[in-house]
Design a protein around this nucleic acid. Structure first.
Length: 196
DNA sequence: TGTGCGATTACG
DNA sequence: GTAATCGCACAC
């Protein structure tokens, strides 16, 4: 990492704000696994309970229980019969905000990532999509609800690389509702985003 | 109890 | 362009 001596977990207060605020600030933060795997967040999308595209839009259900829980926890959902996607729960508890992590630039433990995701033909294909990065980082339903602040298996950390001054902002990918909301952000210079 | 559909990916 | 694949949410 850029500054190994300055690594601090994002505090609970970071997550307790609206996901529209948190999402662009998560760019360039680091998702770290206890076994050494780590990747820099280069693409995110915000979801909210007043947002027709959000899982939380129709209220609390068994699936979205974590999304309505305390901020700073990981909301992992299953989709298309085979894929897992990871979010950071944001906003006040009970509201249903989250930020979907859509792509990482792998920065450590790349050998372990390749082992966990053998279909990736190169480093760029390890984490360039929401379901790709969960494979590379071994995130499944077992991680649904883990605490990113006080837990020791997965954490989001700040290594003093600031978010980009001018992140690229676009509409979100792969949704069929609220398609006009410009709630996707990515690092424009990054080679590791899912789509440009 | 039944059914349509994904916050996707990989391959032809 | 499209098959793969299954749990969930909601209709019946």
């Amino acid at each position: 990492m850029a500054n190994p001596k300055k690594l601090q977990k994002l505090p609970r207060s970071f997550y307790s704000r609206d996901s529209l605020i948190v999402a662009p600030e998560l760019l360039n933060k680091v998702l770290r696994c206890h076994d050494g795997r780590a990747g820099r967040i280069v693409e995110v999308e915000a979801y909210r309970s007043d947002d027709p595209a959000a899982h939380s839009y129709r209220g609390r259900t068994p699936r979205t229980e974590v999304m309505f829980g305390a901020p700073g926890h990981m909301y992992v959902y299953f989709t298309y019969g085979m894929h897992w996607c990871a979010n950071a729960v944001c906003g006040p508890q009970g509201v249903g905000n989250a930020v979907l992590i859509r792509a990482l630039q792998p920065i450590a433990g790349l050998d372990l990532m390749h082992a966990a995701r053998p279909l990736a033909k190169n480093d760029r294909q390890l984490c360039n999509g929401p379901a790709c990065l969960t494979q590379a980082m071994s995130i499944t339903k077992l991680q649904n609800g883990v605490d990113l602040v006080s837990g020791d298996r997965y954490a989001l950390v700040d290594d003093d690389v600031p978010p980009p001054e001018r992140p690229v902002q676009t509409t979100r990918i792969g949704i069929s509702k609220a398609m006009d909301y410009p709630w996707r952000w990515y690092v424009g210079e990054s080679l590791y985003v899912s789509k440009k």
